[in-house]
Amino acid sequence: MKTTITVNGEARALDLDPRTTLLDALREHLKLTGSKKGCDHGQCGACTVLVNGVRINSCLSLAVMHDGDQVTTIEGVGTVEKLHPMQVAFLTEDAFQCGYCTPGQICSAIGMLSEVAENWPSQETTDLTGKITLTDDELRERMSGNICRCSAYPQIVAAIKSAAGEMA
């Protein structure tokens, strides 16, 4: 089935079995292996990408559902010459050990900061009609869809806070 998805700014024409997930289209067909397959069931967040600027689990979406969409993967977040502030912060804060969850963590964190900028509430938001402050509790709650089995969570929190300051 023919579908065209703009990935990291470039229109990519694909001819796929409808069963192909967005994650498999990225990894197996476009050879963009930065997005990782952890659980393949939306539980770990390693496959997180941005679709039209919004973070989703690419393993729980069919590629054909994304005809015409703009997808950003870790490969499109920054370049080797010019890293994204979130990538710099993950390096500076040593926010990983094995690194397998990191592309998903970074894409998720970028999407999460956009959600905070739009004042979207979370479970930790006590005043639903006020302006959201990104406390540590808010940050941890909002990142709960990304698991790090090396348990680099304290450094991940520090990195995201640091990048949030840089990006503000």
Binding site: G42, G45, T48, V54, R55, I56, N57, L60, S61, S108, G111, M112, E115, P121, S122, Q123, T125, L128, R142, M143, S144, G145, N146
Partner: peptide
Amino acid sequence: TQAIVAGGSGQLRNK
């Protein structure tokens, strides 16, 4: 709002 944000993860609720 409270019920929705008690369910799933940010990524899932976006979809």
